[in-house]
């Protein structure tokens, strides 16, 4: 019950998360006791030195990985020990990913890339085409529906990725260095787009090492040696 309530207000709740990688005899504590809550509709930038555990945290956030111990409540559900299929279903329903290298499928068109998660949700073809067209115009690519990703600029590709992440109306948007492969002008464009999505109510959690990019977020979380150094 308590989780239900906190789930509505805090879609992401971490309770004492640990992630330990065993490398032979050595143990790497990638996450070493992380407890945090992310409020609905907030925009977070996760920062920290290389190796501090940012990617590990994002992978667990995105249900691509499971913590060694501790609990992760996503929208009120404990997802820390689900099986592979259930994690797939959770990703499909709750999470939108935006990657540094865009990660579009080259043989699919812009429209097909945007519609890809809808395909896995079993949405029929006609409806998913409509949704794809709608989100393409949200990111300003209504004239590029039939194009292949390779025919687009980096900024345009990242906008396709944003449209794909939004297509299923996920609970959280996860962005991993979303401007890492873009020039500064395009980076501004993309960040403004993410800010807009956040203003429209999406919870956005972004990993970045650039302070200028982190400025766009309302909150900053600083990681250090697998622990939270500060949250503001």
């Amino acid at each position: 019950m308590k989780e239900e309530i906190s789930g509505a207000e805090y879609p992401v709740v971490f309770e004492d998360l640990h992630k330990i990688y065993e490398m032979g005899n050595e143990k790497v504590r990638a996450l070493d006791g992380v407890t945090a809550q992310f409020k609905k509709g907030s925009f977070w930038a996760i920062m920290g030195a290389s190796g501090s555990g940012k990617s590990t945290m994002l992978n667990i956030l995105g249900c691509l990985d499971r913590p060694t111990s501790g609990s992760y409540f996503l929208d009120g559900h404990d997802v820390s020990s689900l099986d592979d299929d259930s994690l797939s279903d959770i990703r499909l329903k709750y999470i939108g990913f935006i990657f540094q290298s865009f990660n579009l499928i080259p043989q699919l068109t812009v429209a097909e890339n945007i519609a890809l998660p809808l395909y896995y949700q079993g949405v029929d073809e006609g409806h998913s085409e409509e949704v794809a067209a709608r989100f393409a115009s949200v990111v300003g690519l209504e004239n590029r529906l039939k194009h292949r990703p390779t025919e687009l600029s980096g900024g345009q590709q990242q906008r396709v990725a944003i449209a794909r992440a939004l297509a299923t109306d996920p609970v959280i948007l996860l962005a991993d260095e979303p401007t890492g492969n873009l020039d500064s002008t395009t980076s501004v464009e993309i960040m403004e787009m993410l800010v807009n999505m956040n203003k429209m109510g999406k919870t956005v959690i972004m990993v970045t090492h650039e302070t200028s990019i982190a400025e766009y977020a309302q909150h900053r979380l600083l990681m250090k040696d697998g622990r939270i150094d500060s949250m503001e």
């Binding site: 329903k93 999470i95 579009l104 499928i105």
Partner: peptide
């Protein structure tokens, strides 16, 4: 491999 990773991240199950 990359494509498979993308599909899995988006939410494709193994059997899909």
């Amino acid at each position: 491999t990359r494509e498979i990773g993308i599909r899995r991240a988006i939410g494709a199950r193994r059997n899909q």
